[in-house]
Simulated assay, not measured.
Amino acid sequence: MEPTKELLFAYFAGQATSVQQKVIGEWLTRPTSRELYFQWLDEWERSFPQYAPDVARHFDQFRHRLDAPVAESSPLIRPAPVEPSPPLRGSVRWLVAASVALALLVGGWFFREPLLYKTVTTGAYQLRAIQLPDGSTVALNSNSSLQLPRLGYGWFSRQVALTGDAVFDVRHLSTHQPFIVQATDGLAVEVLGTEFSVRSRARQAEVVLKRGKVNLHYATKNRPAQHLLMKPGDRVELDGKGRLRLQGQTDTTRFGNWRYRLFSFNQTPLREVVRQIRYVFGVEVQLADPALARRKLTGTIRAGSSDELAEALAELLDLRVSHRDQNIIFLKPTDNPIPQ
């Protein structure tokens, strides 16, 4: 059974039943269905856009007010006559022009980021598919943002900045212009045409290469520059101490599974699973017993909500799930229930 567009729209809005979610999950196992999935996801998100302030328009209005200030109303009390001063028209005009120029410079400085760059963001458990001006595509995970220049992209450079998780499918240009992803401070991912994923967080990052070649450049003020050439199947981590760690021959069948709401684990400690739940769904998760953090999990789970994923994890690890103050708490079967 193939799901209809209306069913997918209900799924994106979080209104699909468990049976409907199972139908969509089986449909997504076919590679030919994924392109249509992202087309409908993009169409749904365009129908329910996020609020984005039009900074450029408001700045133009501000500049217009400086150029044509509103005339002041006549005072109720007539001022006493004073002796006329020598004409200072030229000086006054110069002062007004200087004031306007200063205001424009100050306003341009404070608003330079939104004027020069476009930023695409996603909220909690929101996916977004983006097509860049050069034909490259980006799948953006929840709680992530991608920044790209408003002018000159594809002409002067193809450099974007990422915070969060994304999968890139980069188009090779006849000019051989490289594509650069600026991740966490000091780490740049440079490619000519390839498919790879980047996870960028504070002082930590992860790059997984599915096809093509990638050059990693990492340089900070406190350590010498590091360069690393990746090949398909490589996975590189940047740890909190600024070290690049290469792991070859990784399982790329799970590459970017979060795009399909699949959560894959391979001997993953429960503390890392908890961190993913917090990041993707924006909810707080607690372990009643700190020893549970060392429990490990292997497998793939499809989940449409934090509660659905928590229940599946509890079943696999023989745990119980409790809720208190909108927090998810994992307990051992022998633990006393936590008051709601």
Rank of each mutant, 00 (worst) to 15 (best):
P49L: 05
D251E: 14
L262A: 09
I338L: 12
A68I: 15
V96A: 06
Y37P: 07
V280H: 12
K332A: 11
H176P: 01
N141I: 06
N143H: 08
P149W: 13
E315M: 12
F168W: 03
S306D: 15
D185Y: 04
G212C: 04
F38M: 05
I24V: 12
Q159I: 11
Q226M: 08
H172S: 07
R93H: 09
Q159P: 03
V96R: 09
D60T: 14
F196C: 03
P49E: 06
A16V: 01
P84K: 12
Q126F: 02
N141P: 08
T268S: 08
L116C: 00
A161S: 13
L309H: 04
S144L: 07
S99Q: 05
G14Y: 04
R261C: 00
L105A: 14
V120M: 03
A291N: 05
F111R: 01
R294G: 05
Q247V: 14
S306N: 09
Q326T: 06
R259S: 06
L127H: 10
L28M: 07
W155D: 15
A288C: 00
S305L: 01
Y153R: 09
V285P: 02
Y11S: 03
A225T: 13
P86F: 08
A97R: 13
R203P: 01
H172T: 06
R128H: 09
E113Q: 12
L238S: 06
A288L: 05
D239Y: 08
N336D: 10
P31R: 11
K118R: 15
E113F: 09
V285D: 01
D60N: 14
T194N: 06
S144C: 09
R295K: 12
I277C: 05
D335N: 10
G135F: 08
Y260P: 02
E72S: 14
S157G: 11
P75V: 12
Y117D: 02
G304D: 09
R171I: 00
L216N: 00
Q249S: 13
N141A: 13
L192G: 08
Q286K: 07
F255N: 03
D42S: 15
P133W: 09
F281D: 01
G123P: 03
V273M: 07
E72C: 10
Q159T: 15
V92G: 00
R89K: 12
L66R: 09
K221V: 11
A10W: 04
A16T: 06
Y51G: 10
T29K: 08
H217K: 07
L216D: 00
H64E: 14
I277Q: 07
L270T: 04
V96Q: 06
E206V: 08
A124F: 06
A16Q: 05
L287F: 02
V285C: 05
S47A: 15
S33E: 11
